[in-house]
């Protein structure tokens, strides 16, 4: 087989391989979307984060605006400190309300930001003051059962 035909086949092979990689990156993976190039960090303290994981999305009005960067436990206050990296294009008022929500009934958990009405904006490194913890299903059920048990006999 002569050199030129060989080069042609190998070139075709390499081009096809790179095309497959691009297909994986752009069509299968999320390189094209949800790629936050410049972010700033905010912190939020929660009593209970439930099943929140690092890299979980941060959403406002249902749109992904950032990702959870770090989760750690604060031994002084016994709270979970969640660092969230928000896309630098978006700024939120000082009284923004952060809550941990679940997408769907069994979906993954994410941080939801409900925007307040303050004139001042949150700056990098600020702490979000108002938070709501994750809903733990067991607690909810036990609360429901307790309330049923306490007002049960009167109703009957």
């Amino acid at each position: 087989m002569n050199r030129k035909l060989l080069d042609l086949w190998v070139g075709f092979f390499v081009a096809f391989g790179i095309a497959a990689l691009l297909f994986l990156a752009l069509k299968v993976g999320n390189l094209s979307s949800a790629n936050f190039s410049e972010t700033y960090a905010l912190q939020a303290k929660f009593d209970n984060i439930g099943g929140l994981k690092v890299r979980a999305p941060v959403k406002s009005a249902g749109v992904a605006v950032g990702r959870v960067g770090e989760i750690r436990f604060d031994p002084q206050t016994y709270e979970a400190v969640v660092t969230i990296n928000v896309d630098a294009r978006y700024h939120f008022p000082k009284d923004t309300f952060a809550s941990i929500l679940t997408s769907g009934l069994l979906g993954e958990q994410y941080v939801g930001l409900d925007v307040g009405g303050d004139e001042k904006l949150l700056q990098a490194g600020d702490v979000i003051a108002k938070t709501q913890s994750a809903v733990v299903l067991e607690k909810l059920i036990s609360q429901f059962l307790f309330s049923k048990a306490s007002d049960g006999p009167d109703k009957k």
Partner: peptide, 15 residues
């Protein structure tokens, strides 16, 4: 050199 390219093609084809 061939192996990563072949694996990428395999995955793309599988998808």
């Amino acid at each position: 050199i061939s192996m990563p390219l072949l694996a990428a093609m395999f995955s793309a084809m599988g998808v």
